[in-house]
Protein backbone atom coordinates (compact mmCIF):
# COMPACT_ATOMS: atom_id res chain seq x y z
CA UNK A 1 0.00 0.00 0.00
CA UNK A 2 2.76 2.43 0.98
CA UNK A 3 6.31 2.06 -0.32
CA UNK A 4 8.96 4.53 0.71
CA UNK A 5 12.43 4.13 -0.75
CA UNK A 6 15.59 6.00 0.22
CA UNK A 7 13.66 9.13 1.21
CA UNK A 8 15.67 12.29 1.78
CA UNK A 9 13.82 15.41 2.90
CA UNK A 10 15.06 18.92 3.56
CA UNK A 11 13.23 21.39 5.77
CA UNK A 12 14.41 24.99 5.55
CA UNK A 13 17.57 23.83 3.82
CA UNK A 14 18.44 21.28 6.48
CA UNK A 15 18.33 17.55 5.79
CA UNK A 16 15.97 15.88 8.26
CA UNK A 17 15.21 12.55 6.62
CA UNK A 18 18.39 10.86 5.45
CA UNK A 19 17.49 7.77 3.46
CA UNK A 20 14.36 6.25 4.96
CA UNK A 21 12.83 3.00 3.75
CA UNK A 22 9.41 1.75 4.78
CA UNK A 23 6.87 -0.61 3.31
CA UNK A 24 3.38 -1.10 4.68
CA UNK A 25 0.91 -3.60 3.27
CA UNK A 26 -2.86 -3.69 3.50
CA UNK A 27 -4.04 -5.22 6.76
CA UNK A 28 -0.96 -4.09 8.69
CA UNK A 29 -0.40 -1.67 11.54
CA UNK A 30 3.06 -0.24 11.94
CA UNK A 31 4.49 1.93 14.68
CA UNK A 32 7.40 4.29 14.30
CA UNK A 33 9.04 5.23 17.55
CA UNK A 34 11.75 7.73 18.16
CA UNK A 35 12.90 10.65 20.25
CA UNK A 36 12.10 14.27 19.56
CA UNK A 37 13.97 15.51 16.51
CA UNK A 38 14.38 12.07 14.96
CA UNK A 39 12.26 13.22 11.99
CA UNK A 40 8.99 11.43 12.79
CA UNK A 41 6.71 14.43 12.16
CA UNK A 42 8.72 15.34 9.06
CA UNK A 43 7.92 11.90 7.69
CA UNK A 44 4.19 12.36 8.40
CA UNK A 45 4.10 15.83 6.82
CA UNK A 46 6.05 14.66 3.79
CA UNK A 47 3.68 11.75 3.20
CA UNK A 48 0.76 14.20 3.37
CA UNK A 49 2.47 16.58 0.93
CA UNK A 50 2.96 19.70 2.97
CA UNK A 51 4.75 22.59 1.27
CA UNK A 52 8.23 23.37 2.57
CA UNK A 53 9.05 19.68 2.94
CA UNK A 54 11.42 19.27 0.04
CA UNK A 55 12.04 15.75 -1.17
CA UNK A 56 15.58 15.77 -2.52
CA UNK A 57 15.88 12.05 -3.21
CA UNK A 58 13.87 8.86 -3.08
CA UNK A 59 10.28 7.88 -3.80
CA UNK A 60 6.93 7.50 -2.09
CA UNK A 61 4.42 5.23 -3.72
CA UNK A 62 0.86 4.98 -2.41
CA UNK A 63 -1.73 2.60 -3.84
CA UNK A 64 0.53 2.13 -6.82
CA UNK A 65 0.71 5.88 -7.55
CA UNK A 66 3.72 8.16 -7.36
CA UNK A 67 2.84 10.47 -4.48
CA UNK A 68 5.33 13.13 -5.51
CA UNK A 69 3.02 14.03 -8.37
CA UNK A 70 -0.03 14.49 -6.13
CA UNK A 71 -1.39 17.55 -4.35
CA UNK A 72 -2.25 17.09 -0.65
CA UNK A 73 -5.99 16.86 -1.33
CA UNK A 74 -5.44 14.35 -4.11
CA UNK A 75 -3.55 12.16 -1.66
CA UNK A 76 -6.57 12.35 0.65
CA UNK A 77 -8.85 11.38 -2.22
CA UNK A 78 -6.57 8.40 -2.94
CA UNK A 79 -7.20 7.26 0.65
CA UNK A 80 -4.62 8.93 2.89
CA UNK A 81 -5.47 10.42 6.28
CA UNK A 82 -3.07 12.37 8.46
CA UNK A 83 -3.97 12.64 12.13
CA UNK A 84 -2.36 15.84 13.43
CA UNK A 85 -0.17 16.10 16.47
CA UNK A 86 -1.61 19.57 17.00
CA UNK A 87 -5.05 19.77 15.35
CA UNK A 88 -5.63 23.27 14.00
CA UNK A 89 -8.43 25.64 15.03
CA UNK A 90 -10.59 27.15 12.31
CA UNK A 91 -12.77 29.92 13.79
CA UNK A 92 -16.17 30.46 12.24
CA UNK A 93 -16.30 27.06 10.52
CA UNK A 94 -18.46 24.46 12.23
CA UNK A 95 -17.20 20.92 12.58
CA UNK A 96 -20.17 19.70 10.57
CA UNK A 97 -19.59 22.11 7.71
CA UNK A 98 -15.89 21.28 7.70
CA UNK A 99 -16.49 17.54 7.62
CA UNK A 100 -19.18 17.74 4.99
CA UNK A 101 -17.08 19.95 2.72
CA UNK A 102 -14.13 17.61 3.17
CA UNK A 103 -16.14 14.48 2.50
CA UNK A 104 -17.86 15.88 -0.57
CA UNK A 105 -14.59 17.25 -1.91
CA UNK A 106 -13.06 13.78 -1.65
CA UNK A 107 -16.13 12.21 -3.25
CA UNK A 108 -15.98 14.71 -6.09
CA UNK A 109 -12.31 13.94 -6.75
CA UNK A 110 -13.27 10.27 -6.91
CA UNK A 111 -16.08 10.99 -9.37
CA UNK A 112 -18.86 10.45 -6.87
CA UNK A 113 -21.87 12.67 -6.16
CA UNK A 114 -22.23 14.69 -2.98
CA UNK A 115 -23.60 12.79 -0.03
CA UNK A 116 -27.11 13.95 0.82
CA UNK A 117 -27.50 16.03 3.95
CA UNK A 118 -29.60 13.36 5.64
CA UNK A 119 -27.20 10.56 4.83
CA UNK A 120 -24.27 12.68 5.99
CA UNK A 121 -25.91 13.56 9.30
CA UNK A 122 -26.65 9.93 9.95
CA UNK A 123 -23.06 8.95 9.24
CA UNK A 124 -21.54 11.66 11.41
CA UNK A 125 -23.87 11.06 14.35
CA UNK A 126 -23.10 7.36 14.23
CA UNK A 127 -19.33 7.92 14.21
CA UNK A 128 -19.46 10.63 16.88
CA UNK A 129 -21.60 8.50 19.18
CA UNK A 130 -19.28 5.55 18.72
CA UNK A 131 -16.33 7.73 19.77
CA UNK A 132 -18.22 9.20 22.73
CA UNK A 133 -18.26 12.67 21.26
CA UNK A 134 -20.93 15.01 22.54
CA UNK A 135 -23.12 15.77 19.49
CA UNK A 136 -22.98 19.48 20.42
CA UNK A 137 -19.28 19.42 19.58
CA UNK A 138 -20.23 18.88 15.95
CA UNK A 139 -21.84 22.30 15.85
CA UNK A 140 -18.89 24.04 17.40
CA UNK A 141 -16.14 25.66 15.37
CA UNK A 142 -13.39 23.26 14.32
CA UNK A 143 -11.19 22.61 17.37
CA UNK A 144 -11.87 26.09 18.79
CA UNK A 145 -11.83 25.92 22.59
CA UNK A 146 -11.46 22.11 22.51
CA UNK A 147 -9.30 20.48 25.17
CA UNK A 148 -6.31 18.44 24.00
CA UNK A 149 -8.28 15.23 24.39
CA UNK A 150 -11.30 16.64 22.54
CA UNK A 151 -9.11 17.68 19.64
CA UNK A 152 -7.67 14.20 19.29
CA UNK A 153 -11.10 12.68 19.55
CA UNK A 154 -12.22 15.04 16.83
CA UNK A 155 -9.40 13.76 14.63
CA UNK A 156 -10.73 10.25 15.14
CA UNK A 157 -14.24 11.31 14.15
CA UNK A 158 -12.85 12.92 11.00
CA UNK A 159 -10.94 9.75 10.22
CA UNK A 160 -14.00 7.59 10.75
CA UNK A 161 -16.09 9.77 8.43
CA UNK A 162 -13.45 9.96 5.70
CA UNK A 163 -12.71 6.23 6.08
CA UNK A 164 -9.19 6.22 4.64
CA UNK A 165 -7.12 3.36 3.25
CA UNK A 166 -4.03 4.47 5.14
CA UNK A 167 -4.10 6.43 8.39
CA UNK A 168 -0.88 8.13 9.44
CA UNK A 169 -1.35 9.20 13.04
CA UNK A 170 1.21 11.67 14.31
CA UNK A 171 1.50 11.54 18.12
CA UNK A 172 -2.23 11.00 18.36
CA UNK A 173 -1.71 9.65 21.89
CA UNK A 174 0.13 12.66 23.27
CA UNK A 175 -1.54 14.66 26.00
CA UNK A 176 -4.37 12.22 26.60
CA UNK A 177 -5.66 10.92 29.91
CA UNK A 178 -6.31 7.21 30.14
CA UNK A 179 -10.00 7.40 29.20
CA UNK A 180 -9.34 9.53 26.16
CA UNK A 181 -6.47 7.24 25.19
CA UNK A 182 -8.80 4.24 25.27
CA UNK A 183 -11.35 6.04 23.12
CA UNK A 184 -8.72 7.03 20.58
CA UNK A 185 -7.36 3.47 20.57
CA UNK A 186 -10.86 2.19 19.94
CA UNK A 187 -11.17 4.59 17.00
CA UNK A 188 -7.92 3.30 15.56
CA UNK A 189 -8.80 -0.35 16.05
CA UNK A 190 -12.09 0.08 14.20
CA UNK A 191 -10.11 1.51 11.31
CA UNK A 192 -7.91 -1.63 11.14
CA UNK A 193 -9.27 -3.90 8.45
CA UNK A 194 -7.95 -6.26 5.83
CA UNK A 195 -8.02 -3.56 3.21
CA UNK A 196 -6.61 -0.73 5.34
CA UNK A 197 -3.35 0.08 7.04
CA UNK A 198 -2.30 2.27 9.96
CA UNK A 199 1.00 4.00 10.67
CA UNK A 200 1.34 5.13 14.29
CA UNK A 201 3.98 7.68 15.11
CA UNK A 202 4.66 7.85 18.80
CA UNK A 203 7.08 8.53 21.60
CA UNK A 204 5.73 6.02 24.02
CA UNK A 205 4.77 2.41 24.25
CA UNK A 206 1.56 3.37 26.11
CA UNK A 207 -0.75 3.52 23.07
CA UNK A 208 0.67 0.26 21.74
CA UNK A 209 -0.84 -1.62 24.69
CA UNK A 210 -4.24 -0.78 23.24
CA UNK A 211 -3.39 -0.84 19.55
CA UNK A 212 -1.10 -3.76 19.00
CA UNK A 213 1.14 -3.17 16.00
CA UNK A 214 2.34 -5.81 13.58
CA UNK A 215 5.66 -4.09 13.21
CA UNK A 216 7.65 -1.55 15.20
CA UNK A 217 10.39 0.64 13.71
CA UNK A 218 12.94 2.64 15.61
CA UNK A 219 13.84 5.95 14.05
CA UNK A 220 17.00 7.86 14.88
CA UNK A 221 18.42 10.83 13.03
CA UNK A 222 16.24 10.59 9.93
CA UNK A 223 16.54 6.86 9.37
CA UNK A 224 14.93 3.66 10.51
CA UNK A 225 17.68 1.88 12.39
CA UNK A 226 15.86 -1.17 13.62
CA UNK A 227 12.61 -2.98 12.89
CA UNK A 228 10.88 -5.79 14.71
CA UNK A 229 7.63 -7.11 16.13
CA UNK A 230 5.52 -5.54 18.87
CA UNK A 231 8.01 -6.79 21.49
CA UNK A 232 10.49 -4.21 20.22
CA UNK A 233 8.32 -1.46 21.73
CA UNK A 234 8.56 -3.05 25.15
CA UNK A 235 12.28 -3.46 24.78
CA UNK A 236 12.57 0.24 23.95
CA UNK A 237 10.55 1.17 26.99
CA UNK A 238 12.80 -0.94 29.18
CA UNK A 239 16.21 -0.18 27.83
CA UNK A 240 15.88 3.21 26.10
CA UNK A 241 16.72 4.14 22.55
CA UNK A 242 20.49 4.24 22.92
CA UNK A 243 20.79 0.60 23.97
CA UNK A 244 18.26 -0.82 21.53
CA UNK A 245 19.68 0.90 18.52
Amino acid sequence: MLKIKDLHVNVAGKEILKGLDLEINAGETHAIMGLNGAGKSTLANTIAGRDDYEVTKGTIEFMGQDMMEMEPHERVAAGLFLGFQYPVEIPGVSNLNFLRTALNSVRKLNGEDDMSAAEFMKLVREKATHLNMDPDMLKRFVNVGFSGGEKKRNEMVQMAVLNPKLAVLDETDSGLDIDALKTVAEGINVQRREDTAVLLITHYQRLLSYVQPDKVHVMIDGKIVKSGGKELALELEEKGYADVA
Binding site: D51, V76, V88, A102, S105
Partner: peptide, 19 residues
Protein backbone atom coordinates in the same frame (compact mmCIF):
# COMPACT_ATOMS: atom_id res chain seq x y z
CA UNK B 1 -5.00 26.21 8.72
CA UNK B 2 -4.51 25.87 4.98
CA UNK B 3 -2.59 22.63 5.30
CA UNK B 4 -5.09 21.23 7.79
CA UNK B 5 -7.92 21.84 5.31
CA UNK B 6 -5.90 20.40 2.45
CA UNK B 7 -5.01 17.33 4.50
CA UNK B 8 -8.76 16.76 4.82
CA UNK B 9 -9.30 16.79 1.07
CA UNK B 10 -9.91 20.43 0.19
CA UNK B 11 -8.22 22.00 -2.81
CA UNK B 12 -6.14 25.09 -2.19
CA UNK B 13 -8.85 27.53 -3.26
CA UNK B 14 -11.56 25.66 -1.41
CA UNK B 15 -9.38 25.81 1.68
CA UNK B 16 -8.94 29.57 1.36
CA UNK B 17 -12.67 30.04 0.78
CA UNK B 18 -13.49 27.98 3.85
CA UNK B 19 -11.09 29.84 6.14
Amino acid sequence: QLFYCRARGLGEEEAVAMI
